[in-house]
Amino acid sequence: MRRANSLFASRPFRFAFTLSAAAFALSALACGGTDEATYVRGDEVPGLDEPAMSTGLDKVDLEKLFDENMGKLLKSPFYREIAANDPPATVAIFPIKNETSEHIGPQMQALLSRMETTLVNERRVDVIDHERQAELLKELKLQQSDLYDKDRAAEVGRRLGVQYFITGKVYDSAERTSDVRRVQYFVFMQAISVETGKIEWQEESALTKGLVPVN
């Protein structure tokens, strides 16, 4: 016991022990701690939707694009005119063509679905649902991408019995340096007459997302 005490009490041992303890502490730090992430609901964490987490489009971006485009569509002379039709005009919403460097197809689909929902609930025009479009495309042996071709889209519109289709395109100007990425989005929405092919309404909106160094 005395020998053991003298071993632990000796200065070289204390120094070595301190060094070893520091080394193991360093090791624990270097190899990672034990904190873990947890799943949450949006209303549990105020502001969870606010931070941009990528250069893609998120809920905040979609709300901005929706407000800008839908608000202007509902206030446009074109909409006021077709909303006054009796019987109501028939409208289909076709996909937005993604010409960007970001995989935002699903987000654009969500934007169109919100626009469709608003038009349905406005009850001023008749809206043809997406499922009928998909069936018809299959029947005509066309792909969804064919809807971007104005002539084919008009053919699909006629077969669906619609008078107008709302569609659009989104472009970007994307650039990067060694530590900065910037994507400038430009969204163009259109309402096109199936009968004449004429663009009856068009709106443009823009937003920028980026990745920049914090310091």
Binding site: S10, P12, F13, F15, A16, S20, A23
Partner: peptide
């Protein structure tokens, strides 16, 4: 004892 202490430190590192 000193050897053991040094050895222990070296082993720990």
């Amino acid at each position: 004892l000193r050897g053991a202490a040094v050895y222990l430190a070296c082993a720990a590192l």
